[in-house]
Nucleic acid binder design. Structure first.
Lengths: 216, 216
DNA sequence: ATTATACCAGAACTTGTGTTCTATGTCAAG
DNA sequence: CTTGACATAGAACACAAGTTCTGGTATAAT
């Protein structure tokens, strides 16, 4: 019960509330949320807000109109003075046949700028450009940019970059610890997971975002 | 009438509203303001709020509970145009079984902010959230956000959303005109293209970006 | 089949909250 | 002294908005 995946609808609600708050300066009512995400019933919005509150994404003040407090992304709220821009260093390439670079390694000569509202976490993140199409299993293609956070452990369900020692390759998968083995689940739901003994996998970082630019 | 000195009471109200907003995350009601600054009558609070609004310290949304917006130090701020920020309207969902919405249809109640350096083109773009995993062929998964530009023709090699009339479904593919037929090539290089007569495909827009947020 | 759970819709209900009306008091200008 | 703008209090009111109840659908487990 500690960690539950939010439904699409709940994510949508959360994003709408954040957006509404930023744009209007105050918070939406239940009915406004309903109208925005296509829910006709106030009770359903309430139901989903309860879940969001249980999962610590928001905090609600009972009996108070528009009494929602956002916890996740902008606890300080109104400070539009910081522009919400984050310069993420683009450290290099990632390819199947080699371990990924770590933040300390190289100075960032290139950065990509992202807005803070796309990122929840800003510390210690960096970006890599994917080289080759060895990661289509992870729905990541040649030229895509993955934004990573460096860490060497991972919680269940996180999308991580792992180095498989025996195969000498890097792969992006959702990770699940299952006793002394590890299940690596491709993001593509049509593909089967692979299993590996825990000693064989080395977590190199967590994937927090994927950006693909198309068109020329 | 340009610059009027605020009364002690009005300054007090303003400070309280700022404080309340910072601390609680939402805005105070008229009665809460009254209680805090020692006014027993709601009309008096209203009266003073009118003045504060006239003097451009706050902005009120009529009929909306707690609908106060603080304008304080950054009345207009800088527009996001000169910041390289672009607010892209998030118009709705896209799923295999239905045509995609067009920009005119619905008012944008949500936006996502992107930096201009990620986008080359800013006119007429909008975003859609992908529903379901019917587009994994295009390396696009449930929950991903695709940024589109509306257009009904496409050049060779562009990644477009097309409506297949016979199948009654939307799909994302790279398009190639080949005489009177069209080749639709999945982004995933492992998959084979499909071919369709030109009359059967209806270009709905060009995909210019895909954003996937992971984690929590 | 039966139960339980997660999710949703609609409507009724209750309370929260902004608006407005009347009254009172002050004070400076005519 | 009267008038009028400013400032206030109190109460009645109407609508906004949260809560709750009843019922429905799926799905999985028993």
């Amino acid at each position: 019960m500690a960690k539950v995946e939010l439904s699409q609808r709940q994510k949508r609600i959360l994003r709408f509330v954040e957006d509404f708050s930023r744009k209007k300066g105050y918070l939406p009512s239940i009915r406004e949320i309903g109208a925005a995400v296509g829910i006709s019933s106030t009770s359903v919005v309430d139901y989903n807000l309860r879940i969001l509150e249980r999962e610590r994404h928001i905090q609600r003040d009972p009996k108070v109109s528009r009494g929602i407090k956002l916890l996740g992304s902008h606890p300080r709220g109104r400070s539009r003075l910081d522009l919400g821009l984050v310069a993420v260093p683009l450290l290099g390439r990632i390819a199947a046949g080699q371990p990924i670079p770590v933040p300390e390694d190289s100075p960032a000569e290139e950065t990509i700028e992202l807005t803070r509202n796309l990122l929840k976490d800003v510390d210690g993140i960096y970006a890599l450009e994917v080289k080759g199409n060895s990661m289509v299993d992870a729905l990541v293609n040649d030229g895509d940019i993955v934004v990573m956070k460096h860490q060497d452990t991972a919680e269940n369900g996180e999308m991580v970059a792992v180095w498989l020692k025996d195969r000498q390759e890097t792969t992006l998968k959702k990770i699940y610890h299952e006793g002394r083995r590890v299940r690596l689940q491709p993001a593509n739901p049509l593909l089967k997971p692979i299993f590996a003994p825990a000693e064989n996998v080395e977590v190199q970082g967590k994937v927090i975002m994927v950006v693909r630019r198309l068109g020329k």
